[in-house]
Amino acid sequence: MELRINQKTYKVDAEADTPLLWVIRDDLGMTGTKYGCGLAQCGACSVLVDGNVTRSCVTPVASVVGREVTTIEAIESDEVGKQVVTAWVERQVAQCGYCQSGQVMAATALLKRNPSPSTAQIQAAMVNLCRCGTYNAINAAVHDLANNIGSSAAPNEEGV
């Protein structure tokens, strides 16, 4: 089947129900997307499918044929994604870093859809697990961006 990943077309030979995660990692050799649980519990495998954050470990590869998949490898090609990365570095978010690909994808999806999310909207969107406990730094980075992406963004005094 043919997949569109990071604006390139790949021909892959995989059964229809193979999780997208393993096609990305093992067939295509892109290891930025992480395996954490295989059950859509942790979010380490998050990618964007047509801009929506998607847990690739439970996404059958056949279901993304004809759709545009974005992985962490292309995050800086996206204008919002690039800003998310900058905010992540600015806030020194990562510790072990293993979950952070997924966190960055989740934040990018949120901010592309809604450039100035409320605190409640951020809380609802940023649900990936982090065992190092970087939650406050993630929250701070997303709040920074919520204040600065999009012209209508009102200053958010709440912060963290």
């Binding site: 930025g32 962490i72 490898e73 990365v85 992540w88 570095v89 020194q92 990562a94 293993y98």
Partner: peptide, 27 residues
């Protein structure tokens, strides 16, 4: 001082044992 690994870990470039690949490898 800023961490040396922030950028790699924010862009999926950091390599962990689980990401290692060598020629001819089986899983």
């Amino acid at each position: 001082v800023r961490r040396l690994d922030s950028y790699e870990k924010s862009t999926g470039k950091a390599i962990y044992a689980i990401d290692m690949q060598v020629e001819g490898m089986l899983h």
